Simulated assay, not measured.
Amino acid sequence: MYVLLVVAFIDMFSQLPVIAPFATSLGAAPIIVGSVIAVYSFSNMLGNVLSGIWVDKFGSKRILASSLILAGGLVFFYTYVTNPSQLLAIRFFHGFAAGFIVPAAFAAIGRNDDTESNGKKMSHSGAAIGIAAIIGPAMGAIISSRFGIEWLFYFISVALILVGFISLVLITSKPPGVKESNIQEVSGFAFIKKPDIQFAYIAIFLLLLMQGLLTYAMPLKVEELNLAQEMTGIFLSVFGIVAILFFILPSNRMFDRINNRKLMFSGLFIVSLSVFGLGLSTSSSELFISMIFYGIGFALLFPSTSATIMKGTNSQNRGKAFGIYYACFSLGVISGSFIAGLLGTSAMLIFTVGAAIVFISGILMFLNWKQILSNSS
């Protein structure tokens, strides 16, 4: 399952450094290039939500296998694209098909997992995503520059289709509707009313909003400090490495021993301070330290939010819950990039506004949680 997650996210991450130049090479205007990038996240968000509904109805195994194979087939058609309109269309359908994969994967992990180790399992899933985030962009750049971009599409297509067929054989999951004695059964979308799940959705949205801001503003910050542009990739890799270490080392035990709400609030606080530190940084060493703390915040947020979804749902609605969860992923990235674009080219302004959004939102969530506790007592 973790290999499946790596392959699924490499599909997305490997295209990040090449899709804009590819669109430009086809004669796309700047606004079309932006649309080509954004339409994947938009259709991916639609696929996330629909995936959750179908997973709860038909089971995760069939959705996983069919979406992997379909996404792989769509990636192959990138090699036949000859104009921006075709690229825009294939990006939409590719993002939609890929949107079914991750909610189905996490629903399967949840159905096969024991609730006492949800946090640890989610940290391992986070490590798989982190590995893809580190090797995906580098792999995409290397393959496309050395062999041509079509070979990148061939490689991703084969990998997705192969893993899709393997998943039919190796992945097992409980059928939809299996009762879980330790979780109160909730039908439909009623789980959204639970405060903890609401906190998890808001927290993961804020984290990915910050990720969108970071991706946009880090090259600007590197340029402001007169550093080599290659340093952008290094700084962006630092937080991934730190997060992966938290996910795979014994530190991952904290995700089952410490209350998830406390981890979420701590993660949001650390992320906001680290991003504010990025804005204030005047040297590469200060950027490096800020990214280390950003990685710690990321490591606290991802497993705690996803484990909250697992613990607050059951076999009848977990697919829907994770569908919305990953829709918040996509919406966060889109919103972050949009806000950064509105703020212009000042990295200091972008990082300061982003830090303020996360910090204030975290405070409001904390106060709301305290109010809920006081009302319940």
Rank of each mutant, 00 (worst) to 15 (best):
V6D: 10
F9G: 02
L26A: 02
V33M: 09
I37F: 13
S41A: 14
S43E: 04
V49Y: 13
I53E: 11
K61T: 14
R62K: 14
S67D: 02
G73T: 05
F77E: 02
Y78C: 02
Y80H: 14
P84V: 03
S85L: 13
F92H: 01
H94N: 12
F96I: 04
A104D: 11
F106E: 09
A108S: 14
A108W: 04
R111T: 10
N112E: 11
F155C: 09
I156W: 01
I161G: 01
K179E: 03
Q184N: 15
F189Q: 05
I192Q: 04
I197V: 13
L206T: 00
L214F: 13
N226Y: 12
V242P: 11
I244P: 06
F246S: 12
F246M: 14
I248Y: 12
F255D: 07
D256F: 10
K262M: 11
M264D: 02
F276M: 11
G277Y: 03
G277F: 05
S281A: 15
F288C: 00
P303G: 06
S306W: 04
I324R: 02
T345S: 15
M348T: 15
G354A: 00
A355R: 00
I360G: 04
I363W: 03
F366W: 12
W369F: 15
Q371N: 13
S374R: 15
S377Y: 06
